[in-house]
Nucleic acid binder design. Sequence first.
DNA 1: GCTAAAGTTCGATGTACGTCAAACGATGAG
DNA 2: CTCATCGTTTGACGTACATCGAACTTTAGC
Lengths: 105, 105
Amino acid sequence: MPRALPEPSVESFDLTVILSALAEPGRRALMTELYRGSEPIDCAVIAEKADLGLSSPTISHHYRVLREAGLIRTVAEGRKRIVTVRRGDVEARFPGLLSAVLTGR
Amino acid sequence: MPRALPEPSVESFDLTVILSALAEPGRRALMTELYRGSEPIDCAVIAEKADLGLSSPTISHHYRVLREAGLIRTVAEGRKRIVTVRRGDVEARFPGLLSAVLTGR
DNA sequence: GCTAAAGTTCGATGTACGTCAAACGATGAG
DNA sequence: CTCATCGTTTGACGTACATCGAACTTTAGC
């Protein structure tokens, strides 16, 4: 029953798309929370922690942008969505990028 | 009479502004060329190397965005503009960012 | 002083994007 | 089966942005 939502391959990563995704503060907040832990987690929990004041359609939109950029993997588990950072894939294409962007002070 | 154009202090660097600046392909191309050498250089030479097919108002606009983001320093020398990457400043606030973004393939 | 050259600013235009409300699945519980 | 829940899709709206032509500013050379 768990099915992974469509995502780009590492070879098709586009830096413009990735940086555009990370440039948005809300999405970066989601990524920062996701990056903090490394196990798959309910996307609602992350959204809660990020504490953006956004509607669910907007949250959903942001997760979609992150996924289509190749930054996260999303797996549907029943009604929930389980998300993880694609650390290895992003690191393989753009070493140091996630660390530099998400470990900012 | 070289005068430096207004630029943000390191403390006021904003990651959203920086990533937005770097997300645009033309600006990233300019930065990549600038990053390649480390000496101050005529902005027109860089624009030439980057070989974007853009008008001068647009090029000027992109340099402005990069400068206001804190990524480059621009000094007016006569009619020319001499630009350099603010390596130290960016590195101090966001270690590894420029390297990750500009040396990626 | 003129005049040409290098950049910038201004105004306009088309497109991309963030946002929400409403409507729409899909799923787990009773 | 029914219903409430979680999330997505659709449509609309406002804003931000990349782009260019035209006009302007500053500077170098004569």
